[in-house]
Design a binder for these strands. Structure first.
Lengths: 210, 210
DNA sequence: TATCTAACTTAACAACGTTTACTGACAGGC
DNA sequence: GCCTGTCAGTAAACGTTGTTAAGTTAGATA
């Protein structure tokens, strides 16, 4: 019935369909047949472009990491380190709340497959940026000179991930399920500020170590 | 082949089997047939005691919440509020790292089903205890008098959950997969202390609001 | 002894990820 | 202008999943 490169961007289209469906039905709701139907092919066709479902989702996640990193970069327009840290934290949570299905696939979905070293490196781009911002903050005197930038970057990541993860899961606001998005958003914003406050207090210069 | 209450504790046994298998194979690895085989019955028997897989896992999670709450309670032996907060944070992370499969099922597995109000209340026992400790800390002068205990309890939860979640996922230590448990443990401990430090700095009295 | 019922199983369903075997349509060589 | 190979895609099937429907069997009751 078919022949010759009907669509040279086939792999990209499959990934795009997968990304859309992950967002619509969550990581647990996506099936190969659904992805196939969305691009107008049969399920077996996907296997011509991807080894299996795991690899398809891995590559979908890789692309999502790029979007995510771009969103974080765009948000950090401030001139001081504490300003940029705050902007990054807010942008992180905002992206997660806007893309909960993809966020869960990226950060909570089982253990990692055999992804490449390059992919690992790419996925840590945000962390490296955070660390750089922190080091510039130390140089500028905004943070304590003895601040461990790797530990601090991990602390920030832990905080924003915890907030995003709990907000998405709907477990944080007293009631199960996803509460009113406006409430979730307001509370998440408040919490992100509380986290930023506590970091700044702990890392302010002149207070002595730890 | 069988007849009359062969086992009056059937439901409890099924839950126990499910809990063991969740820990061994993770939330995504457990199947009804596996649970059935473990208790020596056929898969359909489970449906005599539970409506479906979701309800079985819900009740399994309910029991796990009790264990979890007990572990947190046992750990908080200190006399001052900051001490108890620190102990609670460490116990939280330690429990998650010791029971990663169950932890993921409890806090990251899809959205919540239609669990009862009682179950919701029970699942928030740890949060309430944290809030009480914080309020006692305010009364004792260990924390700022204007500390918002609900916000602070959420902040703590967000921190320890983020740490536990990322540590379990194996995404935090540069390499994918679950790294050397000793490394994960040491880094998690260090991070838990960093979190506690930042909270205490931000909530110390006499520094002015936020 | 006959009947009822609780407790459990076997067989089957649709849907899942995945594999195998197939079907066309085009390209190049003769 | 035809043969042949290969590429792109599909249909059918496999084993496994959660779940349901239809038995089956052992003990209690009449």
């Amino acid at each position: 019935m078919a022949a010759r490169p009907a669509n040279p961007r086939m792999a990209a289209d499959i990934i795009e369909a997968a990304a859309t469906l992950v967002e619509e039905f969550g990581p647990e709701g996506i099936t190969m047949r659904m992805v196939a139907e969305r691009i107008g092919y049969s399920a077996t066709t996907i296997y011509l472009y991807f080894k299996n479902k795991e690899q398809l989702l891995d590559e979908t996640v890789n692309r999502a990491y790029d979007w995510f990193a771009e969103a974080l970069e765009r948000a950090q327009t401030g001139t001081t380190a504490p300003e940029r840290i705050r902007q990054g934290a807010h942008a992180y949570v905002a992206w997660g709340l806007a893309n909960p299905g993809m966020y869960r696939l990226m950060f909570e979905w089982g253990y990692l497959g055999d992804i490449s070293e390059d992919a690992i490196f790419a996925r840590r781009a945000g962390w490296r940026r955070t660390r750089n911002v922190l080091e510039r903050g130390v140089e500028d005197g905004a943070y304590r000179p003895d601040l461990d930038s790797a530990l601090a970057a991990d602390t920030i990541w832990v905080g924003v991930h915890g907030l995003t993860s709990l907000a998405i899961s709907g477990r944080m606001f007293g009631n199960p399920g996803v509460a009113d998005p406006a409430v979730v958003n307001a509370r998440s914003h408040q919490l992100a500020d509380a986290l930023a406050d506590s970091w700044e207090s702990a890392w302010r210069p002149g207070l002595g170590a730890s």
